[in-house]
Design a binder for these strands. Structure first.
Lengths: 148, 148
DNA sequence: ATGTTATTTAGAATTATTCCTAGTTAGGAG
DNA sequence: CTCCTAACTAGGAATAATTCTAAATAACAT
């Protein structure tokens, strides 16, 4: 879990200005293990920051996600729900450069599913296991791949 | 990947009626490895089913998801995006009924990550592992939990 | 302290999803 | 095969999430 300071200095070293609103959002994110929505963040901060706008919450969250400091759970990047008739456990691998998504057969994923199922008590209905990174081709052909 | 027949008979044996619209949606889902949105399904079927309504697509998808035959990628059960400042690979568990998202410590997830990393050749940058289901409380308090 | 420019705000606009109601239909009973 | 009725669909309205816009504000380098 990132600390408040890590989130803030990630913004700072990426050249973003440190506004009270951004600090507050970082503090809230680092200080909770619930997974708030933009609306919930807005409502929790509103009493202390009466002028806070929901748009600012969305903007700051987008920035933090782009910096890789925060995950956006749900939304496959575009805010829409995608449906998949393949209910066999499998791994999706997305290339952040060429945007292709491939399936990957995995031995460990069924073990993971059994572990999740038995240790949580949930009746599992589905899963999204998505890794993202640079595919082999893009590692050799993009600036990101050579530098990172 | 579920076949058209499996999807259709899942609907049938759960007591749902087999309408041409539902058959068409099942056929489309089983016949693609893209991950269409409700809107895309609607647009692809519209030429052959000019009277088809988007609401029917949403209703059918919800039914199939509740039957566990189709995954809804993205959306932690509600239509909202949840944010998580913990960027260490970990398992998120979302309850489709009460919409709470919890973290789950897991032994197998690091093994999975090593497997993905070595077998894919990707330079991994991050991961999102989200399971959907019914939490223990909602299993006892909802119709879904009792029937499924 | 000042200027530059990124950021915030408030509200409107846009987009995704769900809800509602009247009419239609699938599938079992006869 | 035909009828009956609960289940389903269509279409549009309603709701909810997110993004956009333009003017006001404030961070930070100098």
């Amino acid at each position: 879990m990132a600390t408040t300071e890590e989130l803030i200095s990630a913004l700072q070293s990426a050249g973003y200005r440190l506004t009270p609103q951004r600090r507050a959002i970082c503090r809230l994110l680092a200080g909770t293990d619930t997974h708030p929505t933009a609306q919930e963040i807005y409502e929790q901060l509103k009493p202390d920051y009466p002028s806070l706008s929901l748009a600012t919450v969305y903007n700051t969250l987008e920035t933090l996600v782009n910096l890789g400091m925060v995950y956006a759970l749900g939304s496959a990047g575009d805010g829409r729900v995608h449906y998949d008739a393949d209910t066999q456990p499998h791994v999706n691998l997305a290339c952040v450069s060429c945007h292709r998504v491939v399936d990957l057969p995995s031995e460990h994923i069924s073990a993971l599913e059994r572990e999740v199922s038995s240790s949580s008590g949930y009746r599992l209905l589905g899963a999204r296991v998505l890794y993202y990174g640079l595919c082999p081709q893009c590692q050799s052909s993009t600036r990101l791949g050579r530098d990172a």
